[in-house]
Amino acid sequence: MINKSEILARFARNEVSAEERAAFHAWLQTLTPAEMAALMDEYGEMLVHIETSSAPADEALLAAIHREISTQEVAEPTPLIRRIALRKWAQAAAVALLLGVGIYLWEARQTHPAAPPVVVQNTDIGPGKEGALLTLADGSVITLESAHTGQIAQQGGATASLSGNSLVYDKNGREDVYNTMSTPNGRQFRLVLPDGTKVWLNAASSIRYPTLFSGKERRVSVTGEAYFEVAANADMPFRINVRDKAEIEVLGTNFNVNAYNNEETISTTLLAGSVRVLSTNNKGVIIKPGQQAQIANLSGIQGNQHNTGIEVISTDVDKAVAWKNGLFNFDNVPLQEAMRQLERWYDIRIVYEKEVPDIRLAGKMTKQVTLGGLLIVLEELGVHCKLEANTLTVSAK
């Protein structure tokens, strides 16, 4: 039986061996959310003290947690806004760090009182991972996994090979044959096209492309979300068809496209270079780095295909590409929007018991956290989550 007081005191003095640290982490992983909450309440002060004496591997993250928490402005409570106590978040952050969860900082603004504890009625659900499906021109399907390496297909003279978490095409194609890479929920993968263009594909997304770029343009089709680093070629513009609702014209640049059917907009966020975004009525806008072009996506929600206007806004590009960098960035994100990301990454179904809780999140966290670790955070935000099989029922009371 773990002596919690003794081991935590030794953590605080940095007197634990590597074996003891590993054993303690393994024990923490066995705790239920309710037991974890009890540990925070009972040993919170000691856990926070660990910030000053943790092992080097933990030190940078703990310091970041401490800096962000200590610099937050605490708003005066009002009937409509409540902030979670920073002391509680320091405890939660320290416990999460010991778990390997990597929670940086969370805040909540909500209109409801605190909810009951999280209820988990099955084993934990792990985060998504690298993987995709490749559909060849003849209709055959190959499962792509980062553990595999080497040549996997040859079509029209072009060879496709797996290297780590990337599918790479050479430039030896002789025929225009098309392949499709698709990622189910809980998977993401990387693609290097025959011209050297690099594509990161997020969960629940797809890209259709030729194994040889010929003619006057390079053309691909995308659904879901993808990040592009387009190889420059002024003589052959790069064009992306986005679900037959928008088109992006590129010469050479870095940008992100978010075109999920259940999001309110189709958005193109530019990091470097210049792109032209066109809607279905051929009205186009040119955006600059730091800008995002948004096209209403009402057809994916209400069946309305007539709103084709484009709005250009300034945006946080790091937030737009956080998924590619292994993070959830929920800065000022409504709970329902964040939940759609979780559905795709954890391959779960989210339902709301009554109304959608009126909560906005802030901060960021690693995408490698298990769903159980994330539910601990949601509990602190006043969100009641009940997980049964792969369905997460959400409510706030």
Rank of each mutant, 00 (worst) to 15 (best):
V199D: 04
S205Y: 03
K216V: 14
R208C: 10
P194R: 01
G215C: 10
R219M: 14
S206F: 14
L212H: 09
Y209L: 01
Y209K: 05
T197A: 03
S205L: 10
Y209A: 01
W200Q: 12
E217Q: 15
V199E: 06
Y209T: 02
L193F: 00
V192P: 05
N202Y: 10
V222M: 11
F213G: 00
R208W: 03
P210E: 08
R218K: 12
N202T: 12
R218W: 00
T223G: 15
K216Y: 13
V222H: 08
S221T: 15
V199A: 06
K198T: 08
L191I: 09
A204F: 06
L201E: 10
V222T: 14
N202C: 12
S221W: 07
S205F: 05
P194W: 04
A203K: 03
K216M: 11
S206D: 12
D195E: 01
G215V: 05
L193Q: 01
P210R: 04
V220M: 05
F213N: 00
L191Y: 04
A203P: 08
G215N: 06
L201C: 11
V222E: 04
P210D: 08
I207D: 02
G196T: 01
S206H: 13
L201A: 08
R190T: 11
T223S: 15
S214W: 07
V220A: 04
L201T: 09
L201R: 07
P194F: 03
E217C: 08
I207K: 06
A204N: 14
R208I: 05
T197Y: 04
V222A: 09
N202L: 12
R208T: 15
K198Q: 11
R208A: 13
T223M: 14
S206Y: 13
R190G: 07
R208P: 07
S205P: 11
T211H: 07
R218P: 01
L201Y: 12
R219W: 11
A204P: 09
S221M: 14
P194S: 03
A204T: 12
V220I: 15
S206A: 15
V220H: 06
Y209D: 02
G215H: 06
T197H: 06
L193R: 00
R208D: 09
K216T: 15
S205M: 10
L212Y: 11
D195M: 04
L212S: 07
V192W: 02
N202P: 11
K216S: 15
S206R: 11
W200S: 11
D195H: 00
Y209Q: 05
R219G: 08
T211R: 09
P210W: 06
P194E: 01
L191T: 06
R218F: 00
T223P: 09
Y209R: 06
T211C: 05
G196N: 02
G196L: 00
S206V: 11
R219E: 14
G215R: 06
S214I: 15
T211Q: 11
